[in-house]
Design a protein around this nucleic acid. Structure first.
Lengths: 344, 344
DNA sequence: CTGTTAGCGCGTTCAG
DNA sequence: CTGAACGCGCTAACAG
């Protein structure tokens, strides 16, 4: 019978020791699985622990050991399905390793992205996994330090840490090549950007251009549409703009799945068939992509692999007591073929 | 010039005190905004802090004060947009109050739902906001205790704490009444359940039945379809099953927006017009609902209000040092009219 | 206005 | 195999 005296939660190691008629060391040893102990002692301790509903105080342990058992995950917006799915997997991977995850949502705010290192600086958390979206080329220094850190996603700076991401240039290249192979010649890119700092926008743009060039198709800038907010509305508007400009693409590569959903919606409203008149490919392979109308062909970013690698890396650093050397690790990507653009 | 000695993070209050030539109390006072201090002392302390790159150690403070500045949010699956949006808002509300949020994802596992109280039992976290989905009528005792707790969503038990939720019966009633007012007479309910423990499924079902009865429309059980997983696939399948059984609804109330997306997809594939042939109403008002094809009429659950109330409540309890008395608080709901079923 | 001091609860020596 | 004692870094009395 456990007495959950959670709130008033008195019982301390001393109480247990007193109740069991042993010393605190003995209880501590018992708790950490120290083997050389009389069975009768073990039983007494176990009984005392149960009766008192003893639960170790994390703060005291942390103060002593320097470990909180917590990780910080910093993303820009959990409402973006990609991040929600990534978070879900990171929580699962961390849980498996007996770590908890504190989530910081920075809402596309550079200062808050930088500020997310605070939780580890204050030792509230043992390490940081971050995916900044608004930091500039000069911001690398913000991450200088020796605390455990893993960086996720394309960045305009060279992070002084382990950096995990898919090869966005190659991924966009592959997706574009797929459309070309399916006989598309007027391929639009929704969400790409021609200039600005290195980001998903620019790298996916580069892959797109590369693939076109390799196929001998000239890059037409009217086909490239920047979109600020990568959501369905942005995708729909981009299609409208495209058609308003008299452009009739036969293939569309959207920089994420939400954009692709909006693209498909607008194409349908214009009376176009997918993939008959226009093929559509997205990016991220979020859960909803399977259920879209039609189901969406998309680039899988192996969020699961990223999650596991990120958690392994940061915990490895925690256990090693020092940051991993700077390095870039590309995780594999793949195209998931569905109805919006079947494999050619 | 800040030396970010995060990892090796030595500098302690004593170091700062020594460097500034004052005592630890003075530094501590300075840090907590104690007003009665000579400006020159303040300056010396500030300077020492900057030079040493001092950052307070949370664990030590926690050990002393008993507060971690962390909340636990426990949900079943962050990939469900409703929870992602709720989490985002709870993080924002907590952040505003200078609290961090640790997220527990329990994946429809009862034991893990119960286990989510562990983080507060171990005092790793100051309070818990939880939205269990798999606990039974007999599980109320699991939440006995005096720690700060807020329960969210319909539950089969009377939670011994502050419990925040929308009135699901009334909400489903309103949604159904809206369809009736729009001249629907064969209204299907997707995701409702006729039996089983009290849950969103059964309460929404009750509201649906009530509204029909009030309008003098008999409840036809073939129109009610249980769906295990409330995602688009489930919604699409339910529609298929409905039509396979020879049933032709003219209005469909889906128990969440994802179901509604699948419903709409399947209706379209069957060549039916929305809202012309069939009107569709969802539940939750997730962000994507605005962008669906057609845009989705849905019941808004005021996730934002829930988030703010939940955070306020749990922090209130933390500050009061005791759990709030058991109480049920209904937050307002509203129907957001969009293209899938415009206001009659 | 500032300094001294005693714990918070746990892990970890070091004796016995 | 077990017990006593110290200290992690900070806050809060309490003195001065």
């Amino acid at each position: 019978m456990v007495r959950s005296n959670v709130g008033g939660g008195r019982a301390t190691l001393h109480d247990v020791a007193a109740a069991a008629g042993v010393s605190v060391t003995t209880v501590s040893n018992y708790l950490s699985g120290y083997p050389y102990m009389r069975q009768s002692t073990k039983d007494r301790v176990r009984k005392a622990i149960d009766e008192l509903g003893y639960v170790a105080n994390t703060a005291a342990r942390t103060l002593k050991t320097g470990r909180t058992g917590l990780l910080t995950l910093s993303v820009s917006d959990l409402r973006q399905s990609y991040f929600a799915e990534l978070a879900e997997r990171i929580i699962a991977a961390a849980r498996y390793r007996n770590y908890g995850v504190m989530i910081e949502s920075t809402g596309l705010n550079r200062d808050r992205e930088i500020g997310s290192i605070d939780s580890v600086r204050r030792r509230m958390t043992d390490g940081l996994i971050t995916s900044p979206a608004c930091m500039g080329a000069g911001d690398a220094a913000a991450f200088e330090g020796d605390y455990p850190l893993v960086m996720l996603g394309v960045q305009p700076f060279t992070a002084p840490c382990h950096h995990i991401l898919v090869d966005n240039v190659q991924a966009a290249h592959d997706a574009t090549a797929h459309l070309i192979k399916a006989d598309c010649s007027r391929i639009a890119l929704i969400g790409g950007a021609e200039g600005g700092e290195e980001s998903s926008r620019t790298t996916r743009m580069r892959g797109y251009c590369e693939a076109l060039r390799e196929a001998g198709i000239p890059v037409r800038h009217e086909l490239i549409r920047e979109v600020r907010d990568w959501n369905a509305l942005g995708g729909a508007r981009a299609v409208t703009a495209l058609f308003d400009d008299g452009i009739r693409p036969d293939g569309i590569l959207a920089c994420n799945d939400h954009l692709a959903f909006g693209v498909m919606r607008q194409l349908k409203d214009l009376g176009l068939a997918i993939p008959g008149d226009v093929r559509v490919v997205g990016f991220d392979n979020i859960d909803e992509a399977r259920f879209a109308i039609p189901s969406l062909t998309t680039v899988d970013q192996s969020a699961d692999t990223v999650a596991i690698k990120a958690v392994d890396s940061v915990i490895g650093q925690i256990e090693a007591g020092t940051r991993a050397p700077a390095s870039v690790e590309h995780v594999p990507h793949s195209i998931v073929y569905r109805a919006s653009s079947p494999e050619a």
